[in-house]
Every structure is written in structure tokens, then in C-alpha cells.
Design a protein around this nucleic acid. Sequence first.
DNA 1: GTACATGCAAACTGTTTGCAGGGCA
DNA 2: TGCCCTGCAAACAGTTTGCATGTAC
Lengths: 163, 163
Amino acid sequence: MDTSAAPTSPNGQRPDPSRIERLCIERGLKMTGQRRLIARVLSEAEDHPDVEELYRRASALDSRISVATVYRTVRLLEEKGIVERRDFGGGRARFDPTDRGHHHHLIDVDTGKVIEFEDAEFERLARAIAERLGFSLIGQRLELFGRRPEDAPAARPGRKSGR
Amino acid sequence: MDTSAAPTSPNGQRPDPSRIERLCIERGLKMTGQRRLIARVLSEAEDHPDVEELYRRASALDSRISVATVYRTVRLLEEKGIVERRDFGGGRARFDPTDRGHHHHLIDVDTGKVIEFEDAEFERLARAIAERLGFSLIGQRLELFGRRPEDAPAARPGRKSGR
DNA sequence: GTACATGCAAACTGTTTGCAGGGCA
DNA sequence: TGCCCTGCAAACAGTTTGCATGTAC
């Protein structure tokens, strides 16, 4: 997509560290070529890729990487709080850099597209509900499934949650 | 848990159809011994069992059932809208009879226990958010993850659940 | 009687892990 | 240089499925 986004120093030096790479260094991770690669793919992603997709994109940039490494790296990043593991159904984990800020998702049931949103009132409400039940809120998961009123596809609310 | 809940006719006839079994019949499912068994286990469950747990409970009542059948039946019930598939993390699907009404879940991150709750304000808010984004709300998923404060006020047993 | 449900075990999918070799600090 | 990372493939867990047999309607 955005090949121009590969920042290279004037004389062919290593590209500038990506957003996520900088975070990795900050948290003291040893930066190998593979980790740098994954960091860059994640930095450039505007969606929520799963491991397979990360592997595909990383391989395209440099094929000397294996899925096992993607799994290990992604888990490491999760432990360091650099990405969050998401589950939108479909059985594969998807990943979301935390530095994009806290947000939730609305899934378009017709197209499968995922829209991010934030809502302060919801945050407040979630905390209030947890407290009402005698808990302090650690985390939350909110997903809305919606349909654009405009288009009227023949199909009924499809149930494509199969695995 | 509630073994006394096995309803038997005066003279040892077949137990009355369970809540879920009635729903199955309503939707035209062929009722075999195994399906009746699973229907009963689900009717009596007050938590959100996974397949393994359903299998365990069903086997205890009648060992002539296999996991494969539990998987197939549970999928069938989902297609018929009789149960909902849930994912509370941990990699196994858990099941929730729909006739218990619409509700959300708070998961105790320390014990794994699941507490059900409803909240009218949230329903309102969810619809409003979807509309704001240009969608009409089809479905939603809300899960809160919480921790009981150290000096826990030993919250009253509300609607408890989980495993 | 027939179409469909079941049990068994093998197949599949996503993910993790042991081991030998390689690379970063 | 030493420790950790990586690739490979085998191991795993949850779930699905093909086939022969059994059973509800």
C-alpha cells in the first residue's frame, strides 16, 4: 500500500525506527531484524491483522521470518503492553497497537468492516456498573454489530460466526 | 448441583420435558436421547458451561453420549437460536440459553467467575452510539473484567454463575 | 422404511514449544 | 562472548468430519 512510507536515510542507512519499534526500545527489548520488521508492519497497519496476516505482510518485506517468530513476538508485545489481543470471532486473535488510544469497535455485519470509536459516557457507565456489582473495573470489551440503514441487501441478519 | 431437579412422573415414566427440550420440539428438532440429555443439562445449568463441562454433566446422567455429539448438538441449538455461543477468553466456547433473557457479563479476573447483569442505560447508549456512526444496531457484546477490592465487601450473592 | 443422529477416530486449525544453530548487545 | 532469538517441525487443545451403524418419526 504505502511503500513511500519506508523512511530511508539519505545514504541507504537503516530506515528510521518505526513508532512501535521506538516503544520496544523504550521497554528494553532486544531488537532483532524480525522484531523490527513486525514492529514496522504493526506501525503501518490501519486495521486489526491476525498472525497470519502479519506474517504475510512481514514476509513480503523480508522473507527470512517464520510464523513461530510472529507468534512469539506478538505475545511479547502483548506482555509489554504495546499491543492488545482482540477477538472478533472467527477463532483467530487479532492485534491492535495500544498507542492508537483506547477505543471500541463497531462491526458492519454486511461488509465485515470494523469501525473504531470512543465514548466517554460508556467508560463512565462501565465503571459504574462494575462498582455497583462490587468490583473495580480492570478491563472491558464492547463490540457493536450494526447495519447501514441505506442498503437493503436481500440477506437476513447472517450468522457468519462459524469457525 | 441440584439433583432434586430431575422431574419424574409418579410411576417412573420419562421425566417431563425440560425447558430447553420444549424449545427444541417447538422448532421441529428430532429428539433423541442424547439431545434430550443435553437439553436437560442446559436447562438446569445456572452458569455458562463449555463443551467439556456439558459432556461431563451429561455423561454423569447417562454415559452413552460422546463429545462429538455434544459439539454437534450445541451447534444445532445455536443455529436454532436456542443458545448463544460466548467467548470469555480461555479458548473454549461457552454456552448460554437465550431464554434466560438479554444480559451481559462481568468476569472476575481472579476467580474466573461470571456474573450476569442487565443495564437499561447501556442499551440506550449502545443504540445511540451506533446511530451516531450511521448504523442501526443489530447486536452487541459487552463484557466487563473486574477484580474484587482487597478488603472485599463480600458482595451479596446476586445472580452468580461461572465455573 | 428412510432420512437423519451417533460413536469413533482421524483430520484440521490456531497456537505453543523443544532443540540446534545464529545473531545482538 | 554469552544469552537470547530464530527456524523448523513436532506437539497441543479445541473443534470438525467421514464412515459405518443405530434410531426417531
